[in-house]
């Protein structure tokens, strides 16, 4: 299961300015499983992409490799 988190972490690390700041946690709630993506605040725009395009691509790939039904949330750590 952490395989999904590892794969997502790798995909995100490759597209940001601060790869060492990337963390992906798999959290389970009553509503299901969520992969929480934490990145450097300056990289939020890169991971989300124009109109959410990059976040959508990440979700599509995760669904393809067996994470169907797993949410992918990009967490805004700047709050």
């Amino acid at each position: 299961m952490s395989l999904l988190a590892d794969a997502l972490e790798h995909l995100v690390r490759g597209i940001v300015d601060h790869p060492d700041d990337v963390r992906v946690n798999l959290v389970t709630t009553r509503r299901g499983r969520t992969l929480e993506v934490h990145v450097h605040p300056d990289d939020l725009g890169k991971v989300i992409g124009r109109g959410g395009r990059t976040a959508t691509a990440l979700r599509t790939v995760m669904a393809g490799i067996g994470g169907r039904g797993v949410r992918v949330d990009v967490v805004d750590t700047d709050r």
Partner: peptide, 24 residues
């Protein structure tokens, strides 16, 4: 096949991410 997906949608997404990784 999982990386291709229905109608190639996973492939298109992976291509998009790969292009971003290259650009990075």
């Amino acid at each position: 096949e999982k990386l291709v997906g229905p109608r190639g949608n996973v492939l298109e997404s992976l291509q998009e991410l790969t292009r971003l990784a290259v650009q990075q």
